Simulated scan of single mutants.
Amino acid sequence: MEQPRRDPVGIVGVGNMGGAMAARLLEAGWPVQVCDIDLHRVRLLELQGAQVRHTAAQCATGVAVLIVCVVDSPQVDTVLFGPAGAASVLRAGQDVLLCPTIAPQDTERFAARLLEQGVCVIDAPMSGGPARARDGSMSLMLAGGGAVIDRRRELIAALSDKVFRISARPGDGARSKLVNNLLAGINLVGAAEAIALAERLGLDAASTLALIGQSSGQSWIGSDRMQRAIAGDFEPRAHMTLLEKDTRLALQAAAAAGFEGPLGAAAHAVFARACAAGLAQRDDGALLQLLRQPPVS
């Protein structure tokens, strides 16, 4: 049976998450063009059928949707509005999915600037990690006009079977993601602390984690990260710097809303400490390494 025609998609940023999304779309028959400063990742996707583009503007040329999957607001700004940025070629009728975890006000600013030239933005943060992005089971938090989300429903369905429509206001996806990631950070710090304590008490870490996984202390991120950490696998699926950034942004959003909770700042301080201790480019499960160390007297 002949596959239905699918509109071309561009993806700028094909790291762990963007690369997994690109591979999934290629496997499903979508025409995909990719751009990234990491040429090795680009070449791997080229072998799977992606078209390689060398600038964001080239990647945005001729596509129906441009997916931006970089790390932070300065990178988004460069991708969209820097030299050879995508905004120089984007036109009415093309849409942009903004997937990074960034400050809500930055999402609002980017969306407003693109709307001036008739380009609609779907604020679309992701959660779940590369494996879930690859198999389509990651979460997508969508904020944007109903018309543009409906227009791209086939692409969205190809990317995720866990889609949450937050509101029509770009920026609310970012707010939702920060709330989620603040809790993820708190849970991960708690899991690392618990396993480090178990080891100090003479308990077997793997057995303790298995017990927690079937008990009231379970969290998905704790089980996922601590399983790898106990095995000594600290290769980054999610760099320590990401939750340091995300918890910091969540605290900034909380302060702007006049809210102060008891745990967020403490969790952020642990991620900041881990980065300062040389673990910035390790998997965020390397918190276990940090908390295994005896306190400095």
Rank of each mutant, 00 (worst) to 15 (best):
residue 136 G to Q: 11
residue 126 M to P: 00
residue 91 R to T: 09
residue 127 S to H: 01
residue 100 P to E: 13
residue 121 V to M: 13
residue 123 D to S: 11
residue 137 S to A: 13
residue 121 V to R: 00
residue 103 A to I: 13
residue 130 P to I: 10
residue 92 A to M: 06
residue 142 L to I: 12
residue 91 R to H: 06
residue 132 R to T: 12
residue 93 G to R: 04
residue 108 E to R: 14
residue 96 V to P: 00
residue 133 A to F: 11
residue 145 G to P: 01
residue 129 G to E: 08
residue 94 Q to H: 03
residue 101 T to M: 12
residue 122 I to Y: 02
residue 113 R to T: 15
residue 107 T to F: 10
residue 138 M to R: 06
residue 147 A to P: 03
residue 101 T to A: 14
residue 147 A to Y: 05
residue 133 A to W: 09
residue 125 P to D: 09
residue 147 A to W: 06
residue 100 P to V: 09
residue 119 V to M: 05
residue 139 S to K: 03
residue 130 P to V: 11
residue 93 G to H: 03
residue 118 G to I: 08
residue 100 P to C: 13
residue 107 T to Q: 10
residue 128 G to R: 04
residue 119 V to T: 03
residue 113 R to E: 15
residue 130 P to E: 11
residue 123 D to W: 06
residue 123 D to Q: 09
residue 141 M to D: 05
residue 148 V to M: 04
residue 95 D to Q: 10
residue 111 A to V: 10
residue 122 I to C: 07
residue 129 G to C: 10
residue 95 D to N: 10
residue 119 V to G: 02
residue 112 A to S: 13
residue 118 G to Y: 03
residue 90 L to Q: 00
residue 152 R to D: 01
residue 124 A to Y: 08
residue 91 R to K: 12
residue 108 E to K: 11
residue 111 A to S: 14
residue 89 V to W: 01
residue 94 Q to F: 01
residue 126 M to D: 05
residue 116 E to G: 07
residue 134 R to L: 14
residue 140 L to D: 11
residue 92 A to K: 07
residue 146 G to W: 01
residue 103 A to E: 15
residue 110 F to T: 05
residue 116 E to C: 12
residue 103 A to F: 13
residue 103 A to M: 15
residue 148 V to K: 00
residue 104 P to L: 15
residue 93 G to F: 01
residue 111 A to G: 04
residue 94 Q to Y: 00
residue 102 I to L: 13
residue 134 R to S: 08
residue 134 R to N: 04
residue 86 A to E: 03
residue 107 T to D: 08
residue 111 A to P: 01
residue 139 S to R: 04
residue 109 R to Y: 07
residue 115 L to H: 08
residue 148 V to L: 02
residue 152 R to V: 00
residue 107 T to H: 08
residue 95 D to W: 01
residue 103 A to K: 10
residue 130 P to C: 11
residue 132 R to P: 06
residue 96 V to H: 02
residue 139 S to Y: 00
